[in-house]
Nucleic acid binder design. Structure first.
Length: 233
DNA sequence: GCGACAG
DNA sequence: ATCTTGTCGC
């Protein structure tokens, strides 16, 4: 468990930003992961006009079978009153608390976690994926459906094609824009914690089925927004 | 001052 | 994020 406060969800925006600046220095960008046996996907959804926050974690066994199908080892959903409103750049203060509560109920500990959102592809280099990884003390990868910051060209048309996402005056590489499916808008992959960009891209690519999102993220997405049982209520 | 802006 | 039917395509 971390010593200094890695998270405080009662902070005013300016204090939250100050905290992010301090924590950014602790985010590790080099690989430091154990052999992967379990991979988790995390996502947050909302109910009742945003009043209820719904965190979902799906635990998958690695590797998948010959057909690329992953075995779901565990599944957790945690609901709680929403803490604060969405502010670009401060997403973790809204979503991490619920995600942590969901993780506490897990029986299995994963060696890698894919988070719906940015990792270091963030103004202060600490998006939700990095922040959650720091708190959980686990390797994480950020998988986002759109851009928060940075510049990039158009990735090639083939599945797996990608272009770097750069930011700052010195064109620092903070992530990759990946064509996960042909003829579909690309996704944004970035290192969260303890993972390099090449490794992040490698894992995301290996978890791609025939869908736009990698399996861990896709399944967590589905569970968080109830797209699985929504019919018949 | 004017845009941009993960989920 | 969420509200939602049909429709186009493999």
């Amino acid at each position: 468990m971390p010593t200094a406060p890695l998270h405080d969800w009662n902070l005013a925006p300016r204090d939250a930003i100050a905290l992010q600046k301090r924590l950014a220095g602790r985010v590790e960008r080099a690989d430091r992961l154990a052999p992967v046996r379990h991979l988790a996907g995390v996502d947050i959804g909302f109910e009742q006009d945003g009043a209820i926050t719904r965190a979902a974690v799906v635990m998958l066994a690695w590797p998948p079978d010959e057909d690329g199908v992953f075995k779901v080892v565990e599944q957790v959903v945690h609901r709680e009153p929403t803490r604060m409103l969405y502010v670009p750049g401060l997403l973790s203060f809204r979503e991490v608390p619920a995600a942590l509560a969901a993780f506490e109920r897990l029986r299995v500990t994963p060696q890698l976690v894919m988070v719906d959102g940015q990792g270091i592809a963030h103004p202060r280099r600490i998006g939700v994926a990095s922040h959650l990884g720091l708190w959980l003390d686990l390797p994480t990868i950020g998988v986002a459906k759109s851009r928060l910051c940075g510049r990039h060209g158009e990735p090639g048309p083939a599945r797996g094609d990608w272009t770097p996402l750069v930011d700052g005056p010195d064109d620092e590489v903070i992530g990759a824009v990946l064509r996960s499916r042909v003829k579909v808008k690309p996704i944004f992959v970035s290192p969260g914690h303890r993972v390099s960009l090449p490794t992040a891209l490698d894992w995301v690519t290996r978890c791609l089925g025939r869908t736009k999102l990698p399996e861990p993220t896709r399944l967590a997405d589905r569970l968080a927004s109830r797209r699985d049982q929504k019919r018949g209520e």
